[in-house]
Design a protein around this nucleic acid. Structure first.
Lengths: 181, 181
DNA sequence: ACCTGAACACCGTTCAAGT
DNA sequence: ACCTGAACACCGTTCAAGT
């Protein structure tokens, strides 16, 4: 066993760190997930993580970005599914790896990078919802304000992973209220 | 100066700790607020806090309860104000002392006591909203499901303290959608 | 350029000992 | 019963030193 893994491709190692972080965040939560445990899972020393990432928040952002870039194409591809089903899929994917969304909100005041990520996330979801709403014949002005309300409901569902039962019903009700589907 | 403040009434000292915690949580945030800083603000040693509270989460719950028992009567007393104004007042009061609501959500998986507090909070808000809705002639079944949606929107506004501008507009839109006011 | 060992400052919490 | 000093185990992060 080599003293360090220079033979392993750098992209692979960075990827290994992100994946390890993702799974440790998922089974514990952000605060309980120590850099030591994440490093161990990736087969590196804790300090090595700091070669690839500025700090723990930066690593969190990398994990979130990875998740989103996996999920969004999936959601887009669900052409035949109902809006409710598409939203449900997104919530499931975002929420199952620990309650990271709550961590994002809780740490926004501490990390500018995290706030930027969060604002972009909101913008992205809202744009999709506005598109969806206008497709359903809702006038643009209303589509924008309804989308904002919808984002809050979606975030609410993500933030409360223990209330899974009536999740679909909740989305249906909200969509019916704003006139989508 | 006495070695310890036995002369000071216990209730007063406990109260001093809660108040110190409240203000330290407000200017920093839950994680950045050290027990040392809280203790200092209350004029005690860090360990003394553990005589009065089980742990940091327990102290957080005490702060939240204190806030709520101050705010709720105020909201109830606003008889002449519109529902929007009443909701706005509650959000302002809950959110201004740091983004503690986000901390609650982020730490639910770690603390059973915090989850219990959170569930009670939801129930309380939902009951008030259901009452409000039925007052406006909305049938009970719909009142319940609308209230759940409304709670998510309210929590969304609490969770995003930096989006203050359009807050009133957002509440108005949501209330209009469900037929209140 | 990439990685490590060892250290730093700090944290929440515990506990034996004091009054 | 109430409070403290001193310690414990752990944390994210830094940095000089190695390859």
């Amino acid at each position: 066993m080599p003293r360090n893994n220079r033979d392993i491709d750098q992209k692979e190692k960075k990827q290994a760190i992100i994946e390890s972080a993702g799974s440790v965040f998922a089974e514990k939560d952000f605060d309980s997930a120590s850099m030591a445990a994440i490093a161990k899972g990736a087969g590196v020393t804790p300090n090595t993580i700091y070669w690839y990432f500025e700090n723990k928040d930066d690593l969190l952002i990398a994990v979130l970005n990875q998740q989103m870039s996996k999920v969004m194409p999936e959601v887009m591809a669900m052409r035949t599914a109902s809006p409710t089903q598409r939203i449900l899929h997104m919530i499931d994917a975002v929420e199952s790896p620990g309650a990271l969304m709550n961590t994002v909100h809780a740490r926004i005041s501490r990390s500018d990078a995290l706030r930027t990520w969060h604002d972009n996330f909101h913008r992205m979801i809202e744009q999709i919802l506005v598109f969806e709403a206008t497709q359903h014949g809702i006038e643009p002005a209303k589509a924008v304000s309804y989308s904002r309300l919808l984002v809050y409901v979606i975030e609410g569902l993500i933030s409360h992973p223990h209330e899974t039962e009536s999740r679909e019903e909740t989305i249906d009700q909200m969509l019916a209220l704003v006139g989508i589907q």
